[in-house]
């Protein structure tokens, strides 16, 4: 634990250190180059902002109206058939669309069912192995103003589903092996 904490804390400072050290050794005009790059960051952010407003309002409405809970209730009998734990369902549905909401839900699940319980482990594994897919797609495509996104959503969601299914299977195997 201590070592992993150290590793994850040292990663970013070390990379920045290496970049700057290379710049100094190779005698670049580091700060000028930095400023040029940084002003590009402003342009990208401004391009993304309108997309984020639209997207976040939609997500906030999905949750605020109670529609997400409604969908969870409809789908859960289906999930029982494929043996997907019902308790995880709200997380699985929200994970691709909202990062903050899914962290909140996952924490809640871990608290209620126990961090080290099979359900708690599954929730944590899903959080660690998947991303906020729709948000990621939206910022990447809006930053370059592309209109046709082809099948990107299908491919990314297939990856999410596979990751979630794998989380359930691996965690079940792990908990069975331990007890």
């Amino acid at each position: 634990m201590q070592f992993i904490k150290f590793l994850s804390n040292i990663a970013m400072p070390l990379i920045i250190f290496l970049i700057l050290a290379h710049g100094i050794v190779e005698r670049k005009r580091i700060f000028d180059i930095f400023l040029e790059g940084a002003s590009e960051g402003i342009k990208i952010t401004l391009k993304i902002f309108p997309t984020l407003v639209g997207l976040f309002v939609a997500i906030s409405l999905l949750r605020g109206s109670g529609l997400i809970d409604f969908i969870v209730n409809i789908i859960s009998p289906l999930l029982k058939i494929i043996n997907f734990p019902e308790e995880i369902m709200p997380l699985a549905l929200l994970r691709p669309i909202s990062g903050n909401a899914s962290i909140a839900i996952a924490t809640d699940i871990m608290k209620n069912f126990g961090v080290d319980s099979p359900i708690g482990l599954i929730a944590a594994t899903i959080m660690g192995s998947t991303e906020t897919t729709i948000y990621t797609i939206a910022i990447y495509t809006s930053s370059i103003k592309v209109k046709k996104t082809r099948f990107i959503l299908i491919a990314a969601l297939l990856a999410d589903i596979a990751g979630m299914a794998a989380s359930v299977v691996v965690c079940r195997m792990m908990s069975n092996g331990f007890s």
């Binding site: 920045i16 970049i19 710049g23 580091i30 180059i33 930095f34 040029e36 940084a38 590009e40 960051g41």
Partner: peptide, 9 residues
């Protein structure tokens, strides 16, 4: 901005 700048370097 930070990482765009660092990446440029």
């Amino acid at each position: 901005c930070l990482w765009s700048g660092l990446m440029s370097i």
